[in-house]
């Protein structure tokens, strides 16, 4: 069974970078898929990768990460200004960030209108181990 945990942006808004990342990674390490409202800052995405690498061990293999964000080039000038202003005041609430544990999620495929989570066949793996 797959568990998706939704995290509203308000839950990470007041946190600094390391606390934000720690909160998201702790959920992923419980084999849950994080669905975060909005996105992290670009530097925080890199920091997420860096800290993920530090956390990797025999049990935790890392993450699959995907950020869905409306393309600015498709927006009218007024919408661009409005979005930038909202992001500046309230944080990057636009879009969606998905963080899945690599032990479960093989790949996240992006499509303008759909999100595909390709999962690993855990049952087959278990059978093989027996």
């Amino acid at each position: 069974m797959l568990t998706l945990q939704f995290i509203p942006y308000s839950e990470i808004q007041g946190l600094d970078t390391s606390k934000r990342i720690n909160k998201l990674l702790q959920v992923a390490k419980q084999n849950k898929i994080v669905v975060l409202e909005g996105r992290l800052k670009k530097e925080e995405e890199t920091e997420l990768i860096r800290i993920t690498m530090e956390e990797i061990d025999d049990k935790f293999k890392g993450i699959e990460l995907s950020v869905f964000y409306p393309e600015a080039k498709n927006m009218q000038l007024f919408d661009k200004v409005k979005t930038n202003l909202v992001n500046l005041i309230l944080g990057e609430r636009t879009g969606l960030t998905i963080i899945g544990p690599a032990a479960i999620i093989k790949e996240i495929k992006k499509d303008p209108n759909k999100i595909q989570l390709l999962t690993k066949d855990i049952k087959v793996k278990r059978k093989k181990k027996r």
Binding site: D58, G62, L65
Partner: peptide, 22 residues
């Protein structure tokens, strides 16, 4: 190379021993 996941089991597919893969 920058990656978000690294699984030692992926290296086993290339004929590596478990210790070396880890």
């Amino acid at each position: 190379g920058i990656a978000t996941k690294i699984d030692y089991e992926d290296f086993l597919k290339f004929g590596m021993k478990e210790k070396d893969a880890k």
